[in-house]
């Protein structure tokens, strides 16, 4: 009698206990850690804004990026003396609207980030998985090659690659993707080696999983956290390096409205037109800072050591 009445009660209790202790969905848990970091949330907001600007650049830019307004060379921004709201951030030396060029430049910088990170991340994951799984000669070969790449300062290696391929935005992206590759290979390899010693991998092996399945489905998802962080920080490196190459005349070529390229001949206006010199760099700084903030926030939220 007693037992019968207790059963539903016990079940309810059990349910209550379960619902209290049930872990939240991983994404919810992640978001709870992430949103505490105000800097990271700010970075995310800024990046979303830049993405919107990049996507809708054609619609929101007040002028075409390469149109020459021959009646207004070096017009100052609207708040400065001699400026007008027609060109909010002023015009450059051949009468192009700087704000419109910056908006279209956002498109280029974000594509640079996306393409470079995709290229280097995928190549890095493949090489890292191979190095981690097949120890011995293969691993030594890959890791030695990586060491050699690391012996050269990153920008210098990129310059060498561009010097071989010829200066253009595409080649600059390829160069930057190659230069940042070592970080992804090292990270993936370290994470893979760390995972391989765990029981679930052995279990999967014993139950007959093939090598490819073991690599891609069993182990790789568990190596994702550091790679996500590195990929986010990789956006900022890619944007900075591509802009530096553009500045040196080795990246995007004029009249492309790439932020670094816009600065490449700006030094001559340093006395006469400060707005030509300041805004493109500010755009680079804000974008890179936003990605770095986001990356730091992701690291804190994804790092199990820092949790609780």
């Amino acid at each position: 009698m007693n037992v019968e009445t207790n059963v539903p009660e016990a079940a309810a209790e059990l349910k209550a206990v379960q619902s209290a202790d049930a872990p939240p969905h991983p994404l919810v848990e992640f978001w709870n850690y992430f949103r505490v970091n105000r800097g990271a949330v700010g970075g995310l907001v800024v990046i979303s804004l830049i993405c919107l600007i990049a996507v809708f650049a054609d619609v929101i830019a007040p002028h075409p990026p390469n149109h020459l307004y021959t009646d207004s060379f070096l017009t100052p921004p609207f708040w400065a003396e001699g400026g007008s709201t027609r060109f909010i951030l002023g015009t450059d030396d051949i009468g192009r609207d700087i704000l419109s060029r910056l908006m279209h430049g956002a498109r280029l910088s974000l594509s640079v980030g996306i393409i470079v990170v995709t290229l280097s991340l995928s190549a890095g994951i493949i090489l890292g998985l191979i190095a981690g799984f097949f120890r011995g000669v293969v691993e030594i070969g890959i890791m030695r090659a990586i060491d050699i790449m690391l012996a050269l300062p990153a920008l210098l290696l990129a310059i060498v690659i561009v010097a071989v391929l010829g200066p253009s935005l595409t080649n600059a992206m390829v160069a930057v993707a190659i230069v940042v590759l070592p970080h992804y290979v090292r990270l993936t390899r370290a994470a893979v080696i760390n995972e391989l010693s765990k029981d679930y991998v052995t279990a999967s092996k014993v139950s007959g999983a093939r090598m490819i399945r073991l690599m891609v489905i069993t182990v790789l998802p568990n190596c994702a956290a550091p790679l996500i962080v590195q990929a986010t920080l990789g956006f900022s490196t890619a944007i900075l390096d591509a802009a530096a190459l553009g500045f040196l005349g080795l990246g995007a070529q004029p009249p492309t409205p790439e932020w670094g390229t816009m600065l490449s001949n700006a030094l001559q206006f340093i006395q006469s037109a400060w707005w030509v010199v300041t805004f493109p760099g500010l755009a680079i700084l804000i974008t890179v800072l936003a990605f770095n903030l986001l990356g730091d926030g992701l690291r804190d939220a994804l790092d199990p050591k820092l949790k609780r």
Partner: peptide, 15 residues
């Protein structure tokens, strides 16, 4: 320091 780390130094030099 995060700002310094994110700085495009060629632009910083110009500034």
């Amino acid at each position: 320091s995060l700002t310094g780390y994110s700085m495009p130094i060629f632009w910083w030099a110009i500034l």
